[in-house]
Design a protein around this nucleic acid. Structure first.
Lengths: 230, 230
DNA sequence: CAAGATAGAATGGTCAACCAATTTTGTCTC
DNA sequence: GAGACAAAATTGGTTGACCATTCTATCTTG
């Protein structure tokens, strides 16, 4: 059913005669026009948004995208699994060490206050993580947020590829039921140092802090009989 | 940020260890596990369903798709063209500047005599190139050889992706019929400097030489009415 | 005991009221 | 008339209760 309305919306968009960047009618108007309720329409709009065909802003409206096709991580899955088959955990960590400090350096120049605020929020949440699995997720979000802040689409995609390969390769070693990190966990302070450098707009410091963070993470992986870090 | 949770769901799915066709935990359970409310989670699931990664049935549950509604043929090429659509030439060159100097540093440690010999051969051939197209081809081989010498599968793949994206983005600017580079072309000496550093096993020098090479290439791109370099 | 019926739990889906951000409009002051 | 400020209308987003379907355990009955 929802598939049907999605198709209708696609057709409507191609036939409505609106050019790129134009604003669509409000949701409630479109509902009446297409004869569906708002929930159904919003489901279709959500998919169109995920595909990059439209963008939406509270209070402003829904707009046709100018660059309709951005990939947003859709079909790189095949790439990931193929790469994961021939990559070792050590290689994955080394790739991180190559890319992430430089990304942090760029982020120091391009991060918006919104980015910094989100990073602070994530560091706080990580301190409250009750399981390792939960912590891993937040940590992943933290690093992805920095990649986003760097403001380079290609580098962001590269970062995402490296990290997802790493997750596939390294995941099995993690006990998802284990209790979360303790209060003095080394990554907490390291994350703080990274965000501090970003806030002060010190690219060199941010790169160094990121490198130190990844180094100690790698050391934790190498260390004997000790829970893995990330 | 719904995009965030979508990525987390993708990661979760690839890491949860479930096989194709398996049933996911109920929505309400996943909500608690991922720490998001049900509406957010359902938005992510809706997108995943539209992409064909999961199917959902009332009363039964949510299941991983067996054959994600594929356009199977594409593979890595799809990734390239998708990335190319949202990447500018400037971004592509910046991504190179981030990755390639570090790759050169690693290559200084890992390059085999065979690698070095091949690199020398390529630099010689580039000096003899009679057309720009031929030169581009050899230059590409040169940089790929260094990535190979670095000895990290994942980094090599990343390097390939970046360079292929760059080629797609920058392609049009090259006149394939133009005569090749002149004898004093700046890249010749820069290539030599890189190989010299690799042979002396000086990682820092290799990284610096590579960075200098890419910087001057970028400068050539920016310079007025002058043939592009690569 | 086996087959069918049934009540309850579990699960994904829906809806209407409400929320927050933004724009528009009206009004007052100078 | 211009500008500033506030109130109202507009618009996409969110929430919690409720609905429809399916599964499961239990009871009934021959």
């Amino acid at each position: 059913m929802s598939d049907q309305i999605l198709t209708r919306m696609r057709n409507w968009i191609t036939n409505c005669g609106l050019t790129d960047g134009a604003r669509l009618p409000p949701e409630r108007t479109l509902c009446a026009e297409l004869g569906v309720n708002r929930t159904e329409l919003r489901k279709a709009l959500l998919v169109l948004e995920a595909e990059g065909h439209v963008t939406r802003h509270v209070g402003r409206g829904t707009f046709l995208s100018k660059a309709p096709k951005s990939n947003k991580g859709g079909r790189i899955d095949d790439t990931i699994v193929a790469l994961a088959e021939s990559t070792s955990p050590f290689e994955a960590m080394n790739a991180r060490l190559v890319v992430e400090p430089q990304i942090a350096r760029l982020a120091a120049m391009h991060a918006t206050p919104k980015h910094l605020q989100e990073l602070r929020r994530l560091t706080a949440q990580m301190r409250d993580a009750s399981t390792w699995a939960r912590y891993e997720e937040l940590d992943g979000a933290f690093h992805e947020m920095i990649a986003d802040a760097a403001g380079n689409t290609l580098l962001q995609a590269v970062h995402k590829i490296i990290n997802r390969v790493r997750l596939v390769v390294v995941w099995r070693k993690i006990d998802t039921t284990a209790p979360g990190p303790t209060a003095g966990y080394h990554s907490f302070a390291e994350h703080d140092a990274i965000v501090d450098a970003l806030e002060r707009r010190k690219g060199g410091d941010a790169a160094a802090a990121m490198q130190a963070h990844l180094d100690s993470t790698l050391a934790a992986m190498t260390a004997p009989h000790h829970d893995s870090d990330v």
